[in-house]
Amino acid sequence: MHIDWFVFFAQIVNFLILVFLLKWLLYGRIIKAMDEREAKIASTYEEAIAMRQHAHDSGELYDKRLLELQEKTDEMMHKAASDAETHRRELMSKAREEVDQIRQRWIEAVAREKTSFLNHLKQRAGKEVYAAASRILKDLADADMEKSIIKIFTQRIEALDNQESAAIREAIRTSESGVFVQSAFEIPENLRPEINRIIRSYGASEKAIQYETMPEIVSGIELRTDGYKLAWSLNDYLETLEDSFSHAIQEGMRERA
């Protein structure tokens, strides 16, 4: 076994040439490419981390805003519900007030109608009672109704107690306009002196006594001066009748309701 020294040195040279060529063609280029790729991957990775962080931040911001929006929505919904409830109560209150007003107006209208009807009935009943009573009195006693009324009136004036006598005297004394004897019918002249006598007994002068016919009194007679009134008429009885009618009407309304 021998060594060819030319080949030996040639192989060394060959090897050195190969080292330099591979260093130039292979290692340098490959390592450069690898390093650049590593740097690129590292930068891409850093970029990805930054983007991920950014996405995470954005996500958190979005969640926060979503939460705020939800809170705001809840608040608005709560406020809307509260406003709606308030508005509903106001409307209910207003509606109740309107209903109450309508009811009140209706009640007032009914009351007015009742009053009007009762007034009408009272007048009508008074007239009828008066007419019937007059006819009955005429038929039974052959007496003049008006005379009876005057008689009862004069008896009542004479039968006044001390307190009322004092009151009527004081009224007549202080009166400036005089004493009025008002009746539903014309008092006959022949009966007037008797009435005048009785009134004068309370301090009135003959001239101050004046007679007036007032159809609305229905049937009866009244003594009126400033601040005092003494009356007897069918109104008293008619008022009793009115109370009975009013009671009957209310009963009827309750039954209808």
């Binding site: 060529l21 280029r29 490959i30 490419a33």
Partner: peptide, 20 residues
């Protein structure tokens, strides 16, 4: 062997990609 190594290296490394 040298020729294969050199030519092969040259062929591969003349169009090196730095991308992924």
């Amino acid at each position: 062997v040298m020729a294969i190594l050199i030519v092969g290296s040259w062929l591969v490394t003349r169009k090196l990609s730095k991308e992924i």
